[in-house]
Computed example of a mutant assay.
Amino acid sequence: MANAIITDAQARMEKAGEALQRELQNIRAGRANVGLLNRVEAEYYGAMTPLNQMASIQVPEARVLLITPYDKSALDAIEHAIYASDLGLTPSNDGTSIRLVIPQLTEERRKELAKDVKGEAENAKVAVRNVRRDAIDTLKKQQKANEITEDDLHDLEDQVQKATDAAVKNIDAIAKDKEQELLTI
């Protein structure tokens, strides 16, 4: 039972790192990235559909995204969805595909985005610490119910702490990589 608690805590801590990576994909680094359009949906035959299911999204150049719809009638809907999104990009429609040019970031904007990355990383660390607290509380309840001994409790708390340290180290590495990407011209 106690090992299941630790395994569950480790899995939840890993999910915090994965969530951070997904969140950081949405931060533009001045380079084209297919992940920028993951949250954009367009109306297609009455249903909101993700762009990656309606079109081929490619990166022909370092700062250009090329969106080619599978159905040419969806071109206008895709263009309107991009305008309505929070990307702040202006699509260029040539009749068969849409080009999105990612503007070069200023140094000031890069530093701002680096601060955002640090904030997201801190949120992920808070989530990991919450998982640690929940796991330790559950272990203490088991100890009070005489399901585990006090020595086992200390050993298990150490294991939870080691898992927490590993998760925090992973989050720091993810954040550092994204900051490096942002601050590199």
Rank of each mutant, 00 (worst) to 15 (best):
A2Y: 11
T7G: 04
D8W: 14
A11Y: 11
K15G: 09
A16I: 15
E18N: 15
E23S: 15
E23C: 08
L24Y: 01
Q25H: 13
N26F: 14
N26G: 15
G30A: 03
G30K: 12
A32R: 02
G35V: 07
L36M: 04
N38S: 13
R39N: 15
V40L: 04
E41I: 15
E41W: 09
E41S: 12
A42D: 14
Y45E: 03
P50I: 07
N52G: 05
N52Y: 08
A55F: 12
S56C: 08
S56G: 10
I57W: 01
Q58D: 15
E61C: 13
V64S: 07
L66T: 09
L66V: 11
P69W: 15
P69L: 12
K72T: 11
S73D: 13
L75E: 03
L75G: 10
I78R: 05
E79G: 00
H80A: 14
H80E: 13
Y83K: 12
A84Q: 13
A84Y: 12
S85D: 07
D86I: 01
L87M: 10
L87E: 11
G88Q: 06
L89E: 10
T90D: 11
P91T: 05
S92E: 10
N93H: 09
N93S: 05
G95F: 05
S97D: 02
I98Y: 05
I98W: 08
R99G: 08
L100V: 07
V101P: 01
E107I: 03
R109F: 01
R110N: 03
L113M: 10
L113H: 01
D116P: 00
V117G: 06
G119P: 00
E120M: 06
E122I: 07
A124S: 15
A124H: 02
V126Y: 07
R129L: 10
V131E: 07
D134W: 01
D134A: 14
D134L: 04
A135S: 09
A135Q: 02
I136S: 06
D137Q: 12
T138I: 06
K140E: 13
Q142K: 07
Q143G: 02
K144E: 02
N146F: 10
E147Y: 11
E147C: 14
I148Y: 07
E150G: 05
D152S: 15
D152M: 14
E157I: 08
E157M: 07
V160A: 08
A163E: 10
A166G: 01
K169Y: 01
K169M: 01
A173M: 02
I174H: 02
K176V: 04
E179V: 08
E181N: 02
L183V: 08
T184C: 04
